[in-house]
């Protein structure tokens, strides 16, 4: 049981990081803190994917030293799995794009409500609805 926990500690840590990010997205009232939580959440998923490709023992990083132009066969069991790395390049860029869009929306929110606290924004909207309705 103990070795079950210790041998897979990467996966336990990714679950802890994901829960930290989820907590920040749900419980924090400041909008920038929610975005920081979203960033941590998505980075935890990338940690999971990269841990898929790790192999124990004496393995090489998937680069062929001095292999430019040569086409010799390699033993695939000696190299790490490079497919999750490729998928995660896309996932990192998607995470940054979402952060960029959310920050632009945040600037628009600040221009209109003059605050970045969710409670105060909801109070301003409620007051506006009562006077306008």
């Amino acid at each position: 049981m103990l070795e079950f926990i210790i041998s897979k500690y990467n996966f336990w840590f990714y679950v802890i990081l994901m829960m930290i990010g989820l907590y920040a997205m749900l419980a924090k009232r400041n909008l920038v803190k929610k975005l920081i939580g979203m960033n941590i959440f998505q980075t935890a998923i990338i940690l999971f994917y990269v841990s898929i490709g790790v192999k124990a023992g004496k393995v090489h990083v998937p680069i062929i030293i001095g292999g430019h132009g040569t086409h010799h066969a390699i033993k695939a069991a000696d190299y790490l799995n490079p497919l999750p790395h490729v998928l995660m390049l896309t996932a990192i860029v998607v995470s940054i794009a979402t952060t960029g869009v959310a920050l632009a929306v945040l600037i628009l929110i600040y221009r209109r409500y003059k605050t970045l606290n969710e409670d105060e924004i909801l109070a301003i909207r409620q007051a506006g609805r009562e006077t306008g309705a």
């Binding site: 959440f41 979402t98 945040l106 929110i109």
Partner: peptide
């Protein structure tokens, strides 16, 4: 619209 979009961004990303 921006505040509604922010909520949509958070939930959509999850």
């Amino acid at each position: 619209a921006p505040f509604a979009t922010f909520r949509y961004i958070i939930m959509g990303t999850i």
